[in-house]
Design a protein around this nucleic acid. Sequence first.
DNA 1: CAGCAACGCTACTTTAGATCAGTTTTTAGT
DNA 2: ACTAAAAACTGATCTAAAGTAGCGTTGCTG
Lengths: 243, 243
Amino acid sequence: MQSVQSPLTRKLGSFVVLSSAELKTLDDLHRRRRNFVAGRDLMHQGQTDQAAYILSDGWVCSYKLMRDGKRQIVDFQIPGDFLGLRSVLFHTADHNIEPITPVTASEVLASDLIDAFASSPRLATAVLWAASRDEAMVVEHLVSIGRRSALERTAHFFLELSARLKLVGLGTVEGYACPLSQYMLADALGLSAVHVNRVLRELREEGLLTFQKGKVTIHDFEKLVDVADFDRTYLDDYGPLLR
Amino acid sequence: MQSVQSPLTRKLGSFVVLSSAELKTLDDLHRRRRNFVAGRDLMHQGQTDQAAYILSDGWVCSYKLMRDGKRQIVDFQIPGDFLGLRSVLFHTADHNIEPITPVTASEVLASDLIDAFASSPRLATAVLWAASRDEAMVVEHLVSIGRRSALERTAHFFLELSARLKLVGLGTVEGYACPLSQYMLADALGLSAVHVNRVLRELREEGLLTFQKGKVTIHDFEKLVDVADFDRTYLDDYGPLLR
DNA sequence: CAGCAACGCTACTTTAGATCAGTTTTTAGT
DNA sequence: ACTAAAAACTGATCTAAAGTAGCGTTGCTG
């Protein structure tokens, strides 16, 4: 029994209680470690036979590029998250993945996954849960962009990141380190960089939140939750539900 | 061996080749059939211990409601689609599901799913594939709302529906039956109903597509693909990839 | 078959956020 | 330490889509 868990084990462990055999299987998925430099895409849309990865250190973003050069960032991934899981099942990648910081990740092949599922159906359920959680986030982003104002949307974004980072021990109620530029924020929020800047100023002036020099500081959590219409149960760590 | 397949079997079968034991397991998921009337929600956000369903007939929409009454439709589901799969794994529903037409669906419990996965890891992979496909659509909606204009977005929407319906045999290149109102379209596209109406007029006047009286007629597929920046490989039926 | 409720449609007005065109500040490289 | 480039920031103008208001049409339902 190991005391140091991988971020993925930690995350899945919050959903299912894992046996030591299952922990071992998860551990085995972390053979084939790879390192990537920031800025150089790790996966391209259209690329075939791409492996998936489990992110163990650093931040990346998943995005789609439009014909005219505009881009939409779908989500940022932090340690413990899968990268490009869809690409494996689809045989071809439908989005790009760019490391924002230097990154270390473990390559996972389709066959690894199928073998893991064969050794434990509970693991299959756990991975499906993780995938569903990712989808829930994408859905929330859709709602944000579709129906929330720029201010509400930005507030929601920072609260979501806060909840996610807290779960893997990378943030507190006061705030967290955040290596994103205002341009990336703009691409994620469906806004222009100029407008993001104005919204950040407003959040700061309203005493809600400050994002400066790679640090997010939450000044008034309650007011922020109210502004963003943030669901407190969203992404919460309920403790293992499936035993 | 049956010659009449359920829409789900048909869909999953386009991804993995299924053994007769696996077909039987899928069939067993269709015990517990339920009927629902249009308009009366089948699932509510916040509801706990909700079962999932496999939709066998009719259309439904999944949506989220905001504090101020605005709503965002995340996706429409057609026969063969899972309803509320996330809700089962999350123990509580994070969205609402409303039948648009009268609907028949089969109730699926978390335990059914786990049992099915235990009997066949390939089935687990197939279900993960279906879930990933749904996520890919949500991602595409996100991109649409975030970076496409109202016209492009609407064009993209109708092309996506066309591709999905063709796969389950409910549409052709010329068009398809579509029981949606302009209000629902607005809630799905992140637009106002008034603006949807204007966009539909423009699509009609440009000779691209007509949506009237519950029927979508595609006048110029190629031009529509161009306007929408629609990826032709998106949602395509590649034939079984995993053998 | 009258009357009401959806739904579809259009013109006018308003607004949130984009775009343009910079300046200032911070960061990283030689 | 000095430059170059990237990121942050600002004000002025523009525009896509929202909101508002109202009319016509269809189809229920009592």
